[in-house]
C-alpha cells in the first residue's frame, strides 16, 4: 500500500470517528460541529486532503459528508 493510500484511509477513519462522537450529541447542528472540530484541529494540509477526498467520493460517514460545506477551505 502506498503512503498516499494509507494516509487517505487514515484520514477517512479519523473523520468518521469524529462524526461518531457528534452524531450522539443533542441538537440539530451536528454537521457544523464536526466541521468546527476539523477547522479547529486539522492543519490546512489535512483539510485540503480531506476536501479532495470528499470530492473524489471517499467512504465518508454521511454526517462527515454533511459537514463538508462547513469545512474551511485553506487559503494557501
Amino acid at each position: 500500500m502506498s503512503p498516499d493510500t494509507r494516509s487517505s484511509e487514515k484520514l477517512v477513519i479519523m473523520a468518521n470517528q469524529i462524526a461518531g462522537f457528534f452524531r450522539a450529541q443533542p441538537g440539530t447542528d451536528q454537521a457544523e460541529r464536526v466541521a468546527a472540530h476539523l477547522n479547529d484541529f486539522w492543519d490546512p494540509g489535512m483539510r485540503a486532503q480531506f476536501l479532495a477526498l470528499a470530492e473524489a467520493g471517499a467512504a465518508f460517514d454521511p454526517l462527515v459528508r454533511a459537514a463538508v460545506p462547513f469545512v474551511r477551505r485553506p487559503l494557501d
Partner: peptide, 18 residues
C-alpha cells in the same frame, strides 16, 4: 491563524512529502 500538525499528523505528512 491555522492550527498546525500534531505528532502523528507530522509523520503522515512526512510520508506524503509535505
Amino acid at each position: 491563524p491555522e492550527p498546525g500538525l500534531r505528532i502523528p499528523n507530522m509523520l503522515d505528512a512526512a510520508l506524503e512529502g509535505r
